[in-house]
């Protein structure tokens, strides 16, 4: 926790400084002290102070435990990014069954019929609710759009 909190506090402080610097470029309105910069500038100062407080507080936190369980979550995030890329390319109706099969394999599902039922079921359900019932378009993908 300690290292993580210290990293977080630095991110907060850096972001606060960056926001503050950007607000300096904002135009001011005639006759008003509360222009476009007022709110974000004020918030960036508060944000910086909170970053400092978090840094000070972190010394009282316990030392970091190794985040061993994080690996699977990270892999899923990468798979999701691949999925989003596939959707932009192939559209939702093709990418979804593909990625669901990959997810199921990754999660070590053993029943073979799940590999057919879930991908087709979910894709069809979404198609039914979104496209047929509500008439909301589903992403088509660059190749077919």
């Amino acid at each position: 926790m300690k290292t993580a909190e210290q990293i977080a506090s630095f991110i907060v402080m850096i972001l606060a400084v960056a926001v503050y610097a950007m607000t300096l470029q904002f135009p001011s309105l005639e006759g008003f002290e509360t222009g476009p910069a007022f709110f974000p500038k004020m918030l960036s100062i508060v944000f910086f102070i909170l970053g400092v407080l978090l840094f000070l507080q972190s010394f009282r936190s316990s030392n970091d435990k190794l985040p061993e369980k994080m690996r699977d979550a990270l892999i899923i995030m990468v798979l999701m990014l691949v999925y989003l890329y596939l959707v932009t390319l192939l559209g939702f109706n093709i990418s979804t069954p593909i990625i669901l099969v990959i997810f199921l394999a990754f999660l070590k599902v053993r029943t073979w019929y799940s590999y057919i039922a879930l991908p087709i079921g979910v894709t069809f359900f979404v198609y039914l609710i979104f496209q047929v019932f509500l008439g909301v378009p589903i992403p088509e993908g660059a190749m077919f759009g």
Binding site: I75, V82, L86, I102, A105, M143
Partner: peptide, 16 residues
């Protein structure tokens, strides 16, 4: 299985 899964991803990308 994870290797199979990642291989599948690579394969799909190549296919697309």
């Amino acid at each position: 299985r994870k290797w199979v899964a990642s291989a599948a991803v690579v394969g799909m990308l190549a296919l697309t």
